[in-house]
Design a protein around this nucleic acid. Sequence first.
DNA 1: CGATATGTTGAATACGGTCAAAAAGTGTGG
DNA 2: CCACACTTTTTGACCGTATTCAACATATCG
Lengths: 234, 234
Amino acid sequence: MQTLSQFLASHPVGGAPSTSDWGNNNHVGVVPKVYKPHSILCRQDDENDTIFIVKSGWCLLYRELPDGERQILDTPLAGDTIGLRSMSGPRFASLMSITEVAVYEISARVLLENFLADGDLARRITRSLARLNAILAEHLVNIGRRNAICRTAHFLLELDERLTDVGLSAHEEYDCPLTQNELADILGMTPVHVNRTLRELRKADLVSFKSGHVKMFNRRNLVKLSGFEREYLT
Amino acid sequence: MQTLSQFLASHPVGGAPSTSDWGNNNHVGVVPKVYKPHSILCRQDDENDTIFIVKSGWCLLYRELPDGERQILDTPLAGDTIGLRSMSGPRFASLMSITEVAVYEISARVLLENFLADGDLARRITRSLARLNAILAEHLVNIGRRNAICRTAHFLLELDERLTDVGLSAHEEYDCPLTQNELADILGMTPVHVNRTLRELRKADLVSFKSGHVKMFNRRNLVKLSGFEREYLT
DNA sequence: CGATATGTTGAATACGGTCAAAAAGTGTGG
DNA sequence: CCACACTTTTTGACCGTATTCAACATATCG
């Protein structure tokens, strides 16, 4: 009988879903699941208390507006923990897969029971929340104070850093399943303008984003242009 | 000898700073302090590990950009906890007072030592982080997907809610020391346009913001206009 | 009282949005 | 393998919101 954090420690994240990990883990209250692309893992205003830890795949954390618009808050990647609200109460955001996604699901109630006995877990959760804070903060700066070009460049650099951390990016290249539509909702702009902005970045030989693949040609200048500072991700 | 959370529980927040509370509390690692307006409580990239719990007054949590611009991330109010990064590492934001501010200061290291033994404290911190997440998320939606009028209206409503929670707003009225300059940095727009937007809101008999005082004339329409939903604050 | 910060207004401009349509890509079933 | 439907990407023309720049008015404070 292992504790929750021992379990999590022994199940590293990143890479493609491997079936070997998906045994019977109910004894620690952790339910591994795999979702198909475009599944909704949880919906804003839901009252259930499930927490998700992403093992692999891409998803979107977003808020829906009454008029049908949405604002994407984050693109949780492998290893990220999502869904902890104030430990109870309705969710403030929805979570959707865009590729096949493997997650661990944990009930917040179970988590709370483990919380006190398990210091590592408390620290893991706290760190995850604090990290999301930092990411949201940087996204705010991005939308509030950078123009379309810098904003887009900055986000593509953030993705590179975060994917590199989990071994999914190397040599200034990575796969990214986001559509321009989704990019627009992330960056607070219209799909049309995202398209034009990507074209500009491509024409300037800085970075290209074609058919799900991002390739940086001049990372140094990209960093300079966007004012990217990686510290907020550490 | 009381625990950290017992101490915090017995020192309710809100209202003006009262000198009676500011005794010797070093025995629990909590240092009460009062800052003058426009003091910098901590600066982005600082390596120190102080955490702040606001007792009274207004401050700004913001990120500075290399070009001297800034984006305000939040206006922490009485009772809010600020400064927890990933429990270590450089800060991602600066904290500045704009009125006289009374805070409790706690070392993150001390906090961490208390964390395991003190379930209430763990929950308090977690809740605070989760709440800030929700607030930052809503600010993202605000800047990313609402125009100047709705954005401003939404933020003034958020302030009303949060101030009401700590007894600093009533009857759709509250004092607010923010300048239009600061409002601009909060809302991701220019001071000039903030000014024009406030004029519009005033002319439409929705809300006025004059000489540090906010008064709502038609809260119902303000809520409708901005799409405000208070749930994210609970 | 003068100095500095804050608020207000106007005119010109630009960045990004809107609307529309076509091209290219993707997936499915016949 | 192709035909069809659908999504995604791309491009053009026009428009509007918010920015920029500049000047002046009003508060605030030593």
